[in-house]
Design a protein around this nucleic acid. Sequence first.
DNA 1: CCAGTGACGGCTA
DNA 2: TTAGCCGCCACTG
Length: 111
Amino acid sequence: MSEGKKNFFEDVYEVVKLIPEGRVTSYGAIASYLGSKGSARMVGWALIASHPLTRIPAHRVVNRVGMLTGKQHFEQPNAMQENLEKEGIKVKNDQVVEFEKLFWDPARELL
DNA sequence: CCAGTGACGGCTA
DNA sequence: TTAGCCGCCACTG
């Protein structure tokens, strides 16, 4: 552990990997859990950097309203929704159906 | 070095 | 209620 500041990126990957199938979380929830509350943007940036490097269920990470804002960053824009639907998550108009019900808060459930 | 941008989020008008 | 602005942090031009 302890390598440098970029450790934040690895922490993001760790949390995302822990997201159960059929569940989703938000950038802000991860940032808050890592102590960088308010830096939700960095979480998104970390996912971009992790794209070709690390295989993580990034499709399970959406914004605070459950919208697939990052689908454009996938190899294919529709891949994000496709992956979510494969896990049983319903997506309507780029928005996760019953997002609050499927929401997985690391600070609440992962502890 | 300075300004603009971005997978966000909370506040104000 | 809906729309817009500011703040956080890192990267690019």
